[in-house]
């Protein structure tokens, strides 16, 4: 249903203003050395001239803390209060990168694998993504190696591409995108002919050939390539938490006095406690086995079970790794070795 319109550089802030009259608008905001998706009320607050926000956009659909229900303990027992999905807000995220938007498809595959997760589904349904195509990239970006691109429309409801004049090409991609247009139809101009979107996109060279990736990574399972990773990886969860797709979680109770809530929290396969049994036995005993799980889950198990990869090539895990565990380099090595 893709429809192409033009949004002038003067109209863009007016659009943000118009949307924020009825919905909460979020976008990449710069805060000290950090760029993160924050609530905004005007387009001036948006950060400019950066590759990618430090954190992915997954927290809009899979926040770092998700209340699952609450409970009250009293002398007669326990009362349970279910969450009300109606309270999940309608939100619009402006400036989401195409890789982050494409990651939504993989997240959806995880959370809708029977049984479907209504909290996730509702959050996704109520979030509109106005993507912004990448006009710059860095060495860590590798979306094109996994079938994505700096102008990929997957996951976005509208994709904007900034042209050399500062005006935007607007691709209206879904009914949610259409709804945004109907808020301010006058701001979107009709266009004629090909606007040559590709001309304005960053160049992201292919870093490896993904054609037989799944088989090659499977073949690496019992090789000693993981020994060096076992030594180097220090076992923090930075890679998983900055990843737009890593969705592994913990469930914990948080109580204050007689009241509390059960919450779902981000967790990571890199942490040694993740799979530790109470007996002390750990099925993934070494950091090498844990790093292997990270790779296998994304590039073998998810494709096998959910028909999507667990990686879109945003490169965050590698940019943010304190010990330079570079995922694209690892994949390249596994492809060459196997």
């Amino acid at each position: 249903m893709s429809k192409i319109k033009k949004l002038s550089k003067e109209s863009f802030p007016l659009l943000i203003k118009k949307i924020s009259e009825t919905q909460h608008v979020y976008g990449p905001v710069s805060q000290g050395k950090r760029i993160s998706y924050q609530r905004i009320s005007s387009a001036d607050e948006l950060a400019s001239d950066f590759i990618i926000p430090d954190m992915s956009a997954k927290s809009f659909v899979f926040p770092k803390i998700e209340k699952l229900f609450s409970y009250t303990k009293n002398k007669d027992g326990v009362e349970v209060q279910d969450i009300n999905l109606d309270n999940i807000p309608h939100r619009v995220v402006v400036g989401i990168r195409p890789c982050d938007a494409a990651g939504m498809e993989s997240l959806k595959a995880i959370f809708s694998w029977d049984p479907s997760d209504p909290i996730f589904e509702t959050r996704l349904k109520r979030t509109t993504f106005i993507g912004l195509a990448c006009n710059q990239a860095d060495d860590y970006c590798f979306c094109t190696s996994l079938g994505g691109s700096p102008g990929d429309t997957k996951g976005s409801d509208i994709l904007l591409t900034k042209t050399d004049t500062g005006d935007y090409i607007a691709e209206i991609l879904t009914s949610k995108g259409e709804k945004i247009v109907t808020l301010a139809p006058d701001l979107f101009q009709d266009v004629e002919g090909d606007l040559q979107k590709e001309k304005f996109l960053a160049n992201v060279p292919k870093r490896f050939d993904n054609s037989d990736l799944q088989n090659k990574i499977n073949a690496a399972f019992n090789t000693d390539v993981f020994d060096e990773y076992a030594m180097r990886c220090m076992g923090c969860s930075a890679c998983a938490f900055v990843c737009p797709i890593c969705a592994c979680f913990d469930i914990q109770d948080e109580t204050k006095g007689s009241k509390g809530q059960r919450v779902r929290l981000w967790d990571s396969c890199g942490a040694k406690l993740f799979t530790l049994h109470t007996s002390g036995h750990n099925p993934r005993e070494t950091q090498g086995a844990r790093w292997r799980q990270r790779l296998m889950h994304k590039f073998s198990y998810m494709p096998e079970r959910l028909e999507v990869r667990g990686c879109v090539g945003c490169g965050r895990c590698s940019r943010r790794c304190p010990v330079d565990m570079n995922i694209a380099e690892s994949l390249n090595q596994l492809i060459i070795d196997n």
Partner: peptide, 10 residues
Amino acid sequence: RMKCGFGKCG
């Protein structure tokens, strides 16, 4: 070890 019981927690 499990948390969710239905294929999501990883």
